[in-house]
């Protein structure tokens, strides 16, 4: 069976240990987590997790059912229509030639987030595969460090 990438938005009670239930479920049953982000939903007792996972149809169906089965799970959204964005930060030495950087940042919804004595930090926010290409393209400025934030998604 074919492996597919899937975005899941999971709404859970924001309580002690809930993240370990979810990560433990994935680890224990051998499911993939490609990325996972979590934050409380304002003015509620709930949190939203965005999980990027992959597997064949059968595995994906089980993942959704097993997530549902956890007692603190309120809702699992597996719609195919998500707006999905990811953020990345990249640290670049100041001695580089920044020719073209502005245009590149613009193309990837980016900006310069911080400028220090020795480094600048740029940030971009875009689709996860475009983040891939940005991180490739930005290599020509010899970045010393980079971090991606993991996808966040909302169903539409």
């Amino acid at each position: 069976m074919k492996e597919m990438r899937r975005v899941l938005s999971v709404i859970v009670l924001n309580e002690h240990g809930v993240l370990s239930r979810i990560s433990g479920l994935f680890a224990g049953r051998g499911y993939n987590i490609d990325s996972l982000t979590v934050a409380p939903i304002p003015k509620t007792n709930l949190s939203r997790l965005t999980i990027i996972t992959s597997g064949n149809t059968k595995v994906l169906e089980q993942i959704v059912k097993q997530l549902h089965k956890l007692i603190p799970t309120y809702k699992v959204i597996e719609s195919s229509a998500f707006v999905e964005k990811e953020m990345a930060l990249v640290k670049i030495p100041l001695n580089e030639d920044f020719n073209g950087l502005d245009a590149m940042l613009k193309a990837y919804n980016g900006t310069i987030a911080n400028s220090g004595e020795d480094f600048i930090v740029v940030m971009v926010a875009d689709d996860y595969d475009r983040i891939d290409s940005f991180l490739k393209a930005v290599k020509k400025y010899n970045p010393v460090d980079m971090v991606r934030g993991g996808s966040v998604a909302l169903d539409i």
Binding site: Q62, K65, K69
Partner: peptide
Amino acid sequence: IDPSSIGK
């Protein structure tokens, strides 16, 4: 009664 049992 357990949906995850079905189709597993």
